[in-house]
Design a protein around this nucleic acid. Sequence first.
DNA 1: AGATAAATTTAGATTAGCCTAAAAATATTT
DNA 2: AAATATTTTTAGGCTAATCTAAATTTATCT
Lengths: 222, 222
Amino acid sequence: MNLSLAEENYLKSIFQLLDNSKERINTNSIAEKLQISAATVTDMIRKLSDKKLLNYQKYYGVHLTAAGKKMAISIIRRHRLWELFLVEKLGFKWGEVHEIAEQLEHVKSDLLVERLYNFLGRPECDPHGDPIPDESGNFPLQRAIPLSDTKVNIRLQIAGVNYHETDFLDYLDERGLLPGKKIKVNEITQFDRSMDIQMTGQKKTIHISHEVASKILVEASA
Amino acid sequence: MNLSLAEENYLKSIFQLLDNSKERINTNSIAEKLQISAATVTDMIRKLSDKKLLNYQKYYGVHLTAAGKKMAISIIRRHRLWELFLVEKLGFKWGEVHEIAEQLEHVKSDLLVERLYNFLGRPECDPHGDPIPDESGNFPLQRAIPLSDTKVNIRLQIAGVNYHETDFLDYLDERGLLPGKKIKVNEITQFDRSMDIQMTGQKKTIHISHEVASKILVEASA
DNA sequence: AGATAAATTTAGATTAGCCTAAAAATATTT
DNA sequence: AAATATTTTTAGGCTAATCTAAATTTATCT
Ligand SMILES: [Mn+2]
Ligand SMILES: [Mn+2]
Ligand SMILES: [Mn+2]
Ligand SMILES: [Mn+2]
């Protein structure tokens, strides 16, 4: 099945909106995510339905078929591999890569993807800590939790973020709060749930709001 | 100026057809190169003419403006950098990369191109020996000549090819006749101008036709 | 020079992917 | 249960990039 750029973007967006939990999503949510009109979405989901990539029930939204899901995961895989390539190999910052990966993800060549995957060392996560599915479409287990859900004095490692706006990524960049970095929460202010955190081997503490902490993902560190 | 994929392909093809020598090229040659109808070409060159990327005189063909030439060179630069990336970094064979580079060349990001260029060591040639223009659009000097134009017993180095069909590249691949390899012509058969060549440090000689020799580019070797 | 051939343009369609406005269906509120 | 609001679909249109067939222009041949 050879899909157009537009079709691929719809599938990817629908997959992300379903979010492994919702049974079906509605026309308007797709329209909003892709910043196009609802009328256009109706046309396209009808087309994708004809191609058996999703199930569409008039007035009641869509969900992906197995084939549609497979395609969506493949596009996400490509996106994340390219993002990692841009950061790891070309020295881009993590806030700079999304737009470029939006283009690169549509390059059609299975061989290319597999070679890129190996070139990058068969990675499990992209620069933002998002999981990269393997060749078969299986996602690696994610055991990261929001920093805001942890307690003080536990050794943690930054795994990624669950919010991808460039401003936020730049904010973390400036403070050195990047994936792989080891940190510890020194104190949590009960009042506003803001926290003082400290990076392993550094004296200085960093104070971040609950809002920020809730967008940083961490896992237990050895 | 943000060009569509189609517009970029027209500019690249027109640049290649003009070949640094022709004053102007005609509608049919573009149609044939891009495998589309002449009527479609007329429409598109009118559009590119409106955008001041080429000069078009009805019934008398086109030639590129400075702006059009600059764009064309930029696309060729991207194409060749990606081809080199695929061969050097991802281990593709030189016959496998063209189609993928046809897609990658249209990814829009100047920063990406410059980072890729540096990642590859600011190269002067793509995997087929074709010159890669620098940031300003200047092509490195090419001093390679067809193998068929050389004499016997001169130390030569393979620089590239001037024919890019996969079958031909595979033929050279099988015989180890790749860019960088040092060779010497042992004997030229007057009758059909076929030649016996030998790779430096190897006993075995390889016999190739004039046709093949005319498609291999070589330069003097130290 | 006139006839014929070839190349080019014009005219009229088509498809994908988008739009707005109006109509229809569903959901929510009173 | 009506009325109202929201969501979705339908209808009709637009642009980019393509096509075929017909008309026109230029080039070549006798
Ligand atoms: Mn991204
Ligand atoms: Mn995309
Ligand atoms: Mn190529
Ligand atoms: Mn191309």
